[in-house]
Design a protein around this nucleic acid. Structure first.
Length: 114
DNA sequence: CGCAGTCTAGCAC
DNA sequence: GTGCTAGACTGCG
């Protein structure tokens, strides 16, 4: 479970109006299981995991997590919903893809130089 | 476009 | 308790 918890915390670290990628999260935890990251986000956070450092009030904003391409991959609630939420946060989405992706991209390493 | 790599969670035995 | 399958992904051919 440690894995999932870490994923959620990293997700919560993402400020509003910003997004992150599975790759970044996985890299932040020194892993390469991008799939496992998404998997953890998919199953656990939605069910509210009030345990340990995780606060039930602070659910994981899984909608702020996008693919490495800045595309709205996955999301069981519906990509359209995800896009809408992101747009409300100030992130522009076009055709299930982030317009200002790199602009709104939040990295745990500080910065990412193109 | 299709296959391989990586990790966790769930189900079956 | 151990083993196999499936999955919100990514990278290479």
């Amino acid at each position: 479970m440690r894995f999932s918890e870490k994923v959620w915390q990293l997700c919560r670290k993402v400020p509003k109006g910003k997004v992150t990628t599975y790759k970044e999260i996985a890299a932040a935890m020194k892993t390469k299981a991008y799939r496992a990251v998404g998997n953890a986000l998919n199953r656990n956070p939605m069910t509210l995991f009030a345990k340990g450092s995780i606060q039930k009030r602070d659910i994981v904003p899984c909608h702020r997590v996008v693919g490495s391409d800045g595309s709205l991959v996955g999301f069981a609630r519906g990509l359209g919903k995800k896009a809408e939420m992101l747009r409300k946060e100030g992130i522009k989405v076009k055709n299930n893809k982030l317009v200002n992706f790199e602009e709104a991209l939040y990295t745990y390493y500080g910065k990412r130089k193109v």
